[in-house]
Design a binder for these strands. Structure first.
Lengths: 148, 148
DNA sequence: TTAATACCTTCGTGTTACACGAAGGCAAGA
DNA sequence: TCTTGCCTTCGTGTAACACGAAGGTATTAA
């Protein structure tokens, strides 16, 4: 049996977030004692872990809520839960692909800067070169940006 | 020479966003005509593309602003820009790794559901099985969530 | 000439998922 | 008794706009 503070410590959430989640109905098993204090048991902690985890993977709160309501409804909702999870997985995959593009893109950008700084392209520290490379910054900024 | 509407069409941004960016100083080359209308030339469009692109890769507006201000300052700021971009790249890499974890995690979750639905684990459609698998939903929810 | 269209401005609200603080109250332990 | 820790509601702020309204200006077509 844990308090808000303990639940927060265990799950790595803030106390604010723990209260927020419980109040939103994302922790079905949470109880209140006679002093109206939230009491978390092992199951509540599991739910919190689960919420955190779906949250981290980018699922919005209201969708998590839907999922949890389906869980509460029982095993008859397994097909719906499967569908929901599949859709979320597809979304996560799309994000992964995007993230790959971004990294590739930034790799290129930093490589360009590095080349400049290592004087493989131009000695930008030499004022004599400054007007030849006057618009370099624009190029560097622009070069990789057409792609995304 | 383009209007807000055209610039929005070309870059795939909304008119709101285009005005927002120009007003924030993220499009240095944008001008106003005698009627106070924003006039975008090719360079402005490039800046807009660049902003969109940094934006998409997760850079906050104020950091983009910093970067652009450095660009405007000229080539003497190339080292700072490099540092900034490297940091952003590291952040993007971290996000990529996270995204991989999330996908792996969701793969597992959906696989579990699939196994259930294909009756490889239990026939959940048969009411006779319902109390044996009463807490399955909790398990499914929880199983992969300890990890993240 | 008039009406429609497209641009401009500022203002204000809504969104998401909280963070953070304040005010005010209750209950248990030293 | 005092402190601590919990509770509540309220309100503000965040990021990056979306969206609409109100009110003004300028061009263009009928």
């Amino acid at each position: 049996m844990y308090t808000v503070k303990e639940a927060a410590q265990i799950t790595g959430l803030t106390e604010h977030a723990v209260r927020f989640y419980t109040d939103k109905g994302l922790v079905p098993s949470v109880q209140r004692n006679e002093n109206n204090i939230r009491i978390f048991d092992g199951e509540s902690i599991n739910w919190l872990h689960g919420v955190k985890c779906l949250k981290q993977s980018g699922m919005p709160i209201d969708v998590i809520k839907m999922y949890i309501d389906l869980c509460i409804e029982g095993d008859s909702t397994i097909p719906q839960r499967y569908t929901l999870m599949m859709e979320h997985k597809e979304a996560a995959l799309a994000k992964l692909e995007e993230a790959k593009l971004h990294v590739a893109h930034l790799e290129e950008k930093t490589a360009l800067y590095q080349a400049i700084l290592e004087h493989r392209i131009l000695d930008t520290t030499n004022p004599a070169n400054w007007d030849r490379i006057q618009h370099m910054h624009g190029d560097v900024f622009y070069k990789a940006s057409r792609r995304v």
